[in-house]
Design a protein around this nucleic acid. Structure first.
Lengths: 150, 150
DNA sequence: TTATAAATACAATAATGTTGCATTTGTGTT
DNA sequence: AACACAAATGCAACATTATTGTATTTATAA
């Protein structure tokens, strides 16, 4: 699930996007790539509490601008960020997959493997992008609830 | 588009849900039913600036709990609320339609007429609900941009 | 008309996100 | 290797959005 990358690859990523290789940015990258769920600013802040809040916000913003991560809102309306896959470019995201928000663990999964169904809009509407949300139980939480643990 | 209802009908709605018929609630209802787009707390506040902000938040919350309106987040992650159609019940929303967020006027349209495509999730995921988002130009704004007004 | 529970208004607080600026750091150049 | 400069970070202040507690007001049923 989670894409495995080493520190050299993260440095390359930054360089490719004309971003300086700084410790905070590398740490954010490695955290986001180590998980298969999206990450919010609060998530980052709780782990990297030695990095300034504002810095984290700004890192997330540049990464999004550069097409490294994309933003997705969870059920509570808080912004979460997930690593983009190959076909995202600067200021032009291809975010057309299913976002699954677990109602128990609150994690947001990007299910890239699912391709979006084509659909036609009512007359007059011109869509530029689609996003599909689902909420429910993720594999981990549905297993837990089945055996009534917790 | 916008559902036409009179004040008696709004009073009935409140009564049906065991909510007291108060002036703020009736005003919120009539505003929300008069538009075909979703409404945010800031929207309400700018129009009804004589009503306390907190009251508006609480009204939106009860209405959502009672299944009168449902919450949908716009592109900026701010909560918008739209009137539900018939099949929503208390604490059990049927929100499975397309939400269209115009990138120009920022309005959120609920396109109920569009039925959701069926889709199968990866193994282990148990979906309870789906929501489909699209962003782009709404009919009004696409017409404007075509004739290069503004 | 009155009693009571519910709803509102107001004040205070919390959480989240943004802006401006001084300081520090990375990087290309000498 | 050292310097210069732009970029990034850290810090302080502020803005916005949402929540909680409580006194006051209001709707409704007795």
């Amino acid at each position: 699930m989670a894409q495995v990358k080493n520190n050299y690859q993260f440095e390359d990523m930054l360089q490719k996007h004309n971003l300086k290789k700084t410790a905070p940015r590398l740490r954010v990258l490695s955290m986001m790539y180590s998980k298969n769920t999206a990450t919010s600013q609060p998530d980052l802040e709780s782990v990297m509490n030695d990095i300034d809040r504002v810095t984290l916000y700004r890192i997330l913003n540049v990464f999004e601008e550069k097409g490294i991560i994309h933003k997705v809102f969870d059920l509570n309306g808080t912004a979460n960020y997930a690593v983009c896959h190959s076909d995202c470019q600067e200021n032009h995201h291809h975010d057309e997959h299913l976002h699954f928000n677990c109602t128990v663990c609150k994690n947001v999964y990007c299910l890239n493997e699912l391709n979006m169904p084509r659909l036609t809009l009512p007359a007059g509407f011109e869509a530029q992008g689609f996003t599909l949300y689902a909420s429910g139980l993720c594999p981990k939480c549905s297993k837990k609830s089945a055996v009534k643990v917790n």
